[in-house]
Design a protein around this nucleic acid. Structure first.
Lengths: 178, 178
DNA sequence: TCTCGACATGTCAACAGTGGAAGGTAGAGT
DNA sequence: ACTCTACCTTCCACTGTTGACATGTCGAGA
């Protein structure tokens, strides 16, 4: 249940409505913690209910601007420092690798080739995002840039790995002491 | 809903009971697609209900050995070749990076240091797993080894990135054209 | 004036995942 | 004979996630 913390984090930077937050998720946070509209609104209501955020202002079209409360900031800091992150990496992509044996060598190879392409295009997209974003020197900007760098390195790593893996499959078996 | 495909994949290699599969998940698949006991048994019942797997034999203690059916193999192949994998990387770890600004520089730095250590120990654990596993030349073995290599590279990448990120935070801002 | 796209929120059913409780059996070792 | 461990399955309540549906308003431009 990190969504609540994602919302707290965004609200710690500036006040925002559900709609604003939704947009932010779509653009910057989508790669790290995707969330749907319904989830965001539901969670905001819950957060407000437990006093971690509060409605700061109401605008046109029923717009409700939320702001983080002191209690919310405390919870956010607690999550950042005390709660040890759990690595629950569920990888659709990697899971398939285990079972490439049921395919023909050609098909297995094709899968890895697709992965290379996926990584390459993922890399490119992030690079474009990097170029298009207005990197002011705000906190979110600094750390967003660091997160983006992670994405770049991740894609580069995965591409190289897929190339290596494709080689492994084509090479004859036997002991080769890799 | 990749759990069903994980189960199909394992059953494509050999017949197994829920208990067997549970053990396999705990050891080899846990890093890629964790699953709990209740989830596995539930899914097996569903899979049997839709004819993708079937009970091949019943053993002592109510043991039911499942085997994959032709229909199940077709579904597995279909998933491997036709269904484009979706990258839903929800990363607890990376999400926090966005919000390191709410902490003191020392705390933020400490978080990255913890990440380095986490990556280092993750790397070590995988290396030990690599050394302890009996790598026969079965298909699962070959591909399991490839998946493991991914884990090694991933941890190495993350460690380097965390080191780089820590540097970014300590360095004075300003334009440096990275 | 009208219309359309962006703004804005809420709700619901269905499924996926977590954690734990409950209940029982076979077999190995004392 | 007894006990303990590993084996083995089922069920349930709760939370998280998805996708779709419902509902309406403001403001810019034809």
């Amino acid at each position: 249940m990190s969504l609540r913390h994602a919302l707290l984090g965004l609200l710690s930077d500036r006040r925002a409505s559900g709609y604003d937050l939704l947009k932010t998720f779509e653009t910057s946070l989508a790669n790290v913690w995707p969330a749907t509209q319904s989830q965001i609104y539901t969670e905001l209501t819950k957060l407000a209910g437990s006093g971690l955020i509060a409605v700061a202002a109401e605008g046109p079209r029923g717009r409700k601007e939320y702001e983080i409360t002191g209690e919310g900031m405390a919870e956010l800091r607690h999550w950042l420092t005390e709660v040890t992150p759990q690595r629950t990496l569920r990888s659709d992509v990697l899971l398939r690798v285990f079972f490439l044996g049921v395919l023909t060598p050609e098909q297995a190879h094709a899968y890895l080739t697709d992965l290379m392409e996926m990584s390459r295009s993922g890399y490119e997209q992030l690079r474009q995002l990097h170029d298009s974003v207005d990197w002011d020197d705000g906190n979110l900007s600094v750390h967003g840039r660091i997160a983006l760098e992670y994405g770049l390195r991740f894609n580069a790593m995965r591409r190289e790995w897929a190339e290596w893996a494709a080689q492994q499959l084509t090479q004859p078996r036997g002991r080769q002491g890799w």
